[in-house]
């Protein structure tokens, strides 16, 4: 296992995690991309040393096809996901002009509500007018 690859994967994972923890959606998307690349590198590093393509009928020292296959699949999937997330981010921006990930609105409303008033008819009336 190559030390360079392992260290690189670690650094990328750290960078990705830091970015994902932001509240800005574009940074999260970038972070997810970098995190994905970190894992992809790790998968490659976890594989056996390089060799020739393992095709039946050929000879020589074969490389293990599974890690590259995993990585290729993951790259393709990552490509689709990032494209989707960017579309969602764009949509979010066209809706309210912000790039922030919001809290669960309903949850916040519940947390702010006074629990003792839950069955209060006044509150019911208030809420009835909300929708």
């Amino acid at each position: 296992m190559s030390v360079t690859l392992a260290v690189l994967a670690g650094v990328l994972a750290a960078v990705g995690t830091a970015l994902v923890l932001h509240r800005t959606l574009t940074r999260i998307v970038l972070g997810l991309g970098i995190l994905g690349n970190a894992v992809n590198l790790l998968v490659l590093a976890a594989g056996t040393p390089p060799g020739t393509a393992p095709i039946i009928g050929r000879s020589g020292r074969f490389g293990d096809p599974v890690p590259p296959a995993l990585v290729l699949t993951a790259i393709v999937i990552g490509f689709g996901t990032i494209a989707f997330l960017l579309a969602v981010a764009y949509r979010s921006w066209t809706i309210d002009g912000s790039d922030e990930v919001e809290d669960d609105i309903e949850d916040r409303r519940l947390a702010e509500a006074d629990p003792h008033d839950a069955d209060d008819p006044d509150l019911d009336a208030d809420e009835r007018s909300v929708p």
Partner: peptide
Amino acid sequence: RLADGRSSADPTGGGPGSRR
């Protein structure tokens, strides 16, 4: 409006499944 943008990402996701 963006339904196109979002959904078009999906076949790409379906892609790897069909590739294998």
